[in-house]
Design a protein around this nucleic acid. Structure first.
Lengths: 188, 188
DNA sequence: GACGAAACGGCGGGACCCGCCGTTTCTACC
DNA sequence: GGTAGAAACGGCGGGTCCCGCCGTTTCGTC
């Protein structure tokens, strides 16, 4: 009945995840796995057993945030002006990525992942949730139909990554995001 | 006459730089400094003596490209339509960053650098060279006057970093760049 | 209560970055 | 052209990290 997992395993999983959240929040996506193991009071092998890759750990840490963003996307779908709704949501994605260290890294596509199937659960979830939001905006002519959710996520992640080490990265990221939304040099 | 540097030091500097170019081209910005030392036939301490930080090495490796882009910026300044000239140059920046591994990393601002003065020689050079190009475009109303060269560089670097691991990162980076130029959702 | 399997964690290996320090090598001066 | 001093070198040890192995412990079931 333990959902095909032993009780101590589940306990350790929770402990590690809790510690990892703190460590990633403190040290970003490059947080030390051994440090996490040490603080959690487990062997480093146990950490890797539960989270085979750093990405897996980051995705687990980011999971709540991703779900919150997914919920928000569904909330905003069909509510108010389609352009405003989309931009509101994208703005929240920026804010989340800026405030939650490691989230942007969790959303980056990693082509090195030899697993071609479910290579990135986080962005996959967001893509699914935000699809309708984007489609509605495209139907209303607010964005080009060729633009995908993955494009928007990648662009935001890039902005966040590039501004991460700036003194006031939050305002810089927001600034660049607005610039990209309005267009660097849109044809009139 | 040895420019206040011993002959063997200059020789080693050149050897290390040449090897570093190959290694960075092959393995990206995370190339192993020890591997570079090994191939160059010097001790790893010598590498660090000439290039105290990884960033210093990346900047040195990127130097020719940066200068080429600077020259190109000056060439394009005042030539043809100001908007076209700026976009042409920015497009070349994208192309360079995509083709020359490590260049994007060399252009990223690193706030952790305790040296507040000349924290990033590469982007500083580009900013200076491209300033007039941007100003002319701004005067002609092609871009908002509040936009800086640093903004544009940071945005491009972000796009490149975020697409770096994609299968066809060159086309994806170009695609996102065009999207940002045109505007994600420009007000009509 | 005992047995089998799942989970654990310590250990060794390899790679890396870093600082130290004795030694080599160049250069300027005699 | 030889030599003294300084500049440069590079090997060594330490610390951290990620990874795989494997004997041991602990849990769940019968």
């Amino acid at each position: 009945m333990p959902d095909h997992q032993r009780a101590d395993a589940r306990r350790n999983y929770a402990r590690i995840l809790a510690v990892a959240e703190d460590e990633v929040a403190a040290n970003g996506a490059a947080a030390s796995l051994e440090q996490i193991a040490r603080v959690a009071g487990v062997g480093s092998a146990t950490v890797r057993r539960h989270f085979p890759t750093r990405r897996a750990l980051l995705e687990a840490v980011s999971r709540q945030r991703i779900e919150a963003l997914s919920v928000r996307a569904r909330e905003l779908t069909g509510r108010g002006d389609s352009r405003d709704a989309l931009l509101e949501w994208l703005g929240e994605v920026v804010a989340y990525c800026v405030s939650a260290r490691g989230l942007a890294a969790a959303l980056t596509y990693d082509g090195a992942g030899s697993d071609p199937v479910h290579d990135n659960a986080c962005s996959a979830a967001l893509e699914e949730a935000a699809g309708p939001l984007l489609q509605r905006a495209a139907r209303d002519g607010a964005v080009a139909t060729s633009v995908t959710v993955a494009d928007l996520i990648t662009l935001i992640v890039g902005i966040v990554l590039a501004t991460e080490h700036h003194p006031d990265h939050a305002v810089r990221a927001d600034r660049l995001f607005r610039l990209a939304v309005a267009g660097l040099s849109p044809r009139r």
